[in-house]
Amino acid sequence: MITENEIFNIKSPQDFESIAIDIFQYQYKNIPVYQNFCNLLNCNHQSVKSIFDIPFLPIQFFKSHIISDSNISENIFSSSGTTGSVLSKHYIANTNLYKESFTNAFNQFFGNPNEYVILALLPSYLEREGSSLVYMVNELIAKSENPESGFYLNNIEELIEKLNKLEAIGKQTILLGVSYALLDLIEKQSFQLKHTIIMETGGMKGRRKEMVKEELHTILKKGFGVRSIYSEYGMTELLSQAYSTGEGIYKCPPWMKVLTRDTEDALSLVKSATGGINIIDLANYHSCSFIATQDLGKVNDDESFEILGRFDVSDIRGCNLMVQ
């Protein structure tokens, strides 16, 4: 049985593939929904020798089935959605696995949280229960060990005052915000920030007209006076996140990998071309590590990736993507 320590200590592509195959075998045997799905595809689990042989479970299954190897859940994360829409639910058998994943990823991309003041402008997430993003950011705020860190809902004036104060003393700061709320903020006041990372996540949540990522980032860069806009890519159905430090180019932590599938043939993978985004998230040990999303994107030669939009047939849900 694979241990958490092995998942978060992957050193090479060979390590990743070996652990991914072991996790596939475990999930095939212990997650009935996934086993049934693989069987319907006539996948012989014993013949799987490569990650390219592994079936990817359509993300919609999280709306209609319990995807778990356990009858006991420590937590249940749910997606945001429009009124009356069916929400995805991720049943979490081991919350510590999620904590390990987002903490290790943050450390890899940004360093120790206690090096920053962490501010969160996430009104649409705070206004509902079950947000995995709020859970993550709340833990990172605690790990920052800084009384200046915290969440903001509708108290925009207070946030403006806090950003100006932290800028004046040169304190390294991260402001993570849902896109429409960041736009609301810079309409109240523009900034010239030299010590703050602006990180967007989520779309307009029905509060504003959707716009392409490039246009959004151009407006945010001007309004905050920064050279680049960072982005976080995660979703309810995953326990790991990818990050972009600018230009919409995302990179994964070592235990996460993005592949692209043919838009006309969901069972065929493509390289260096736009396709549906398939994600391997080894931190999803107790649910499913192999997810076929409704996102469109492209994987680059260095395994970084870009998000280009969504399948037209997919319903709108709380994912951090701009529609093109």
Rank of each mutant, 00 (worst) to 15 (best):
S85I: 04
T82C: 07
L126H: 01
T83C: 00
L122M: 14
G111P: 14
Y125R: 11
Y125P: 05
S79V: 02
S78V: 08
N96V: 03
V86D: 12
S88R: 05
T83A: 07
K99P: 01
G81V: 00
L119C: 09
S79F: 02
E129F: 08
S101T: 06
L119Y: 06
S78Y: 02
S78R: 03
A120F: 01
Y98F: 13
H90S: 13
Y116L: 03
S78K: 06
G81M: 00
F109S: 09
L119A: 13
A120G: 12
A120M: 05
H90T: 05
A120E: 02
T103V: 12
Y116A: 12
Y116G: 07
E127L: 07
S124L: 09
A105D: 10
I76H: 00
E100H: 12
T103M: 02
L121H: 06
R128G: 14
S88Y: 05
Y91Q: 01
N96Y: 09
Y116E: 10
S124R: 09
Y116M: 11
P113A: 11
V117H: 11
N114D: 15
R128S: 11
E129Y: 11
I118F: 13
E100N: 13
P123I: 11
K89Q: 13
F109A: 09
G81D: 08
L87Q: 07
E115Y: 14
P113C: 13
L87G: 04
T82P: 02
K99L: 05
L126R: 00
S131W: 03
R128E: 14
P113M: 03
F102L: 05
F106I: 14
N107D: 14
N94F: 00
L97M: 12
T83G: 03
N94K: 05
E127P: 02
S124M: 15
P113W: 01
L119S: 08
I76V: 13
S131T: 07
S80Y: 05
Y125C: 10
S88F: 04
I118M: 14
F109V: 13
F106Y: 15
F102H: 11
P123F: 11
A105S: 15
S101C: 09
N107S: 15
I92K: 02
F102Y: 12
N114C: 10
H90A: 05
F102P: 01
S131D: 10
Y91L: 07
I76P: 00
S79M: 02
F109T: 13
N104G: 12
P123T: 11
L97H: 05
S80H: 10
F77A: 03
G84L: 07
